[in-house]
Design a protein around this nucleic acid. Structure first.
Lengths: 356, 356
DNA sequence: CACAAAATTGTGTGCGCACACATATATATT
DNA sequence: AATATATATGTGTGCGCACACAATTTTGTG
């Protein structure tokens, strides 16, 4: 009941070697005979040794630097949320000698990404959290990180078959299905035309948004065989003048009943648009609890939001790196966060909950 | 940037006394001359001393015992979830010398509560987590805890104007409104008769369930002026034979379109009932991701669940106590968790997310 | 003034760990 | 066989703090 935690000393005693040997085994420092190794390992196998982090950080007196590579938070409130998660992790881990250094790149310029990634690499951090939104530009760095022996964690966007420590994000396909479900609910049995809208900077990234669309369409295919016509609209540059044109075009459709927007920034842009054109009866489902989205939801223009929890994603990413570095724990290969449904009635409960 | 922190040793040197004296001043342990006190205080005044929490917890090597007082988890899967949160906290904090001791009382017997609470008090823990579901029986103990100087945290059920360290739970009124919103969505514009169903052991506790009902009714009153007739059904004893009778009565109503159940245990009980009577077209909205509820949701019998996150509530409760005891941090007076909406499409994402 | 008692102050130890270094044992070289 | 060398193992120290206890100074008493 009142079991004290196992100490290195205890393991040493149980396996009949000295603490130094146990230490070497625990840290894979080599210089241990087969025999001693086996003895220690069998003991470790039987008991669940959890190092005392307190003592470890105090004893080693080491400080870790974790680099976080994300788009400039000033350019997009979504990434500002991510930044908030990074800051939270920084405060949390500061006392354990962990320093989190953010690196921002321009969301619209791949060259900026390369520059910043270069700077990050030369700074030689102990761990890296990265949002790999530029697929082709990011790939070579993974190899560099790996050959430098720096563990890295992906978040927001997954890139399969990369030797990352772990990925933190959501199941995009399922996310689209939730979008479909919510749309169905919001429509209350009506039928007509639906639109899936992608508003995105990088074409490479659109592969991921397509996953959401696939889920969305799948939901209707499975449940509503053909009662809806679903159209896709790609708007790559939010500052483009043709954007207005395209959207106005869409609104001309009298049977348009709902719009599913695959990005958070796109969501409030469309909301603003619907408000301007007085088309607020069109159901709008989008992503994330950005300030603007919250406002439009409270106004009744956005019907549902799916929360991707960018803050939490970044926070957990740093956490995984820290546990890897300090606790030597293996992070789960993929940590898929729940698809949180935000509605007008529960949004305040999300805003007010501090520990979230 | 990398400025070394001031240590007790440094303060001692600066004020020309020994570390022991500084230590005594810092902890108000007395046994310090006026003169020495003044010297140390002036130095402390000039310097911003932040004790190294790491070293403190390691050095004091104190062990804390936290008592958790909850209903017997064997009697209700809801409380089994709470127990899981307590266990999780125990594992998390064990290595820091925190021991969490659970105390279970019989959900159906107030005398059992008193007995167990008595036993807990005599064990004199350093902190207490308590689910105060028996209002009148719990009150006197708060005074005892306070006079004994033991900090206590409430969860699940709030009791205002009590000197608890903090409360962890949800806004019940708002929770009912979310229930109303979900019901409205599930009904897709239909109208008819709705039922609010309370299945509960203790009458005192029903005050809190009434809050949910108030929210539920308020939602319909505000949005649907009179399109629905809402009936209330109180079923106090789940093992009662009249239960079956009452429910069968309810199902006789041909216009019955939906049931909102205010408790998690009640939810799967009603689901089983609807299944048995082949009334699965009646919309069912209830609480919590208990195994049984998950099953009925996947079968399509439960339409929505509102997640009260009992596991997380208990876990956070212990956490608050620990931060108070070890880190000397002040916990928020009330930590209201988000009202999570669980639907058939997002339930798996909740089940699979490990870090939740 | 001598001594005891009380008040004050300083020193030492351990918390659990990492890491440097000293010691001991096995293997290779001449 | 005697040394040199590599390998294996054990011991000691410090991280910053809390706390017990020893050493010192002050005060009280006959």
């Amino acid at each position: 009941m009142n079991a004290k935690n196992v100490r290195i000393k205890d393991i040493a005693q149980l396996s009949g070697v000295s603490v130094g040997t146990v230490d070497r085994v625990l840290h894979n420092r080599g210089r241990v005979s087969e025999e001693a190794l086996k003895k220690v390992l069998t003991v470790l196998d039987q008991i669940d040794y959890k190092p005392n982090v307190i003592a470890r950080t105090l004893g080693s007196n080491k400080t870790y630097t974790i680099a976080a590579l994300i788009p400039d938070p000033a350019q997009d409130p979504y990434w500002a949320s991510s930044k908030a998660g990074i800051d939270q992790a920084q405060t949390e881990w500061l006392r354990y000698g962990v320093n989190v250094v953010p690196y921002f790149f321009n969301l619209y310029e791949k060259s900026s990404f390369r520059e910043v990634a270069e700077a990050l690499t030369t700074d030689n951090p102990d761990g890296i959290l990265i949002a790999p939104i530029f697929y082709h530009e990011t790939l070579p760095y993974f190899n560099r990180f790996q050959s430098l022996g720096i563990p890295y964690v992906l978040f927001n966007t997954n890139i399969e078959q990369v030797a990352s420590l772990s990925f933190i994000g959501q199941d995009l396909y399922q996310s689209g299905k939730v979008g479909g479900e919510l749309m169905q609910l919001a429509l209350r049995g009506e039928s007509g035309v639906l639109a899936v809208l992608h508003m995105n900077e990088d074409l490479g990234n659109s592969v991921h948004l397509a996953e959401k669309e696939r889920g969305f369409r799948e939901y209707f295919q499975r449940t509503n065989n053909g009662k809806f016509e679903i159209r896709t609209l790609n708007l790559y540059n939010p500052s483009d003048a043709s954007l207005e044109e395209h959207l106005a075009d869409l609104l001309k459709e009298p049977q348009l009943k709902g719009i599913f927007v695959s990005t958070s920034k796109g969501t409030f842009n469309i909301a603003a648009f619907l408000e301007r054109y007085n088309k607020t009866e069109v159901k709008l489902i989008g992503y994330d609890m950005l300030e603007e989205n919250i406002r439009y939801m409270k106004k009744g223009i956005i019907n549902f939001l799916i929360n991707q929890n960018p803050k939490r994603q970044a926070f957990l990413g740093i956490n995984h790196l820290v546990s890897h570095l300090i606790l030597k724990k293996t992070a789960p290969a993929r940590d898929l966060l729940p698809l949180e449904i935000i509605s007008p009635e529960n949004i305040n409960s999300y805003l007010n909950s501090g520990s979230h």
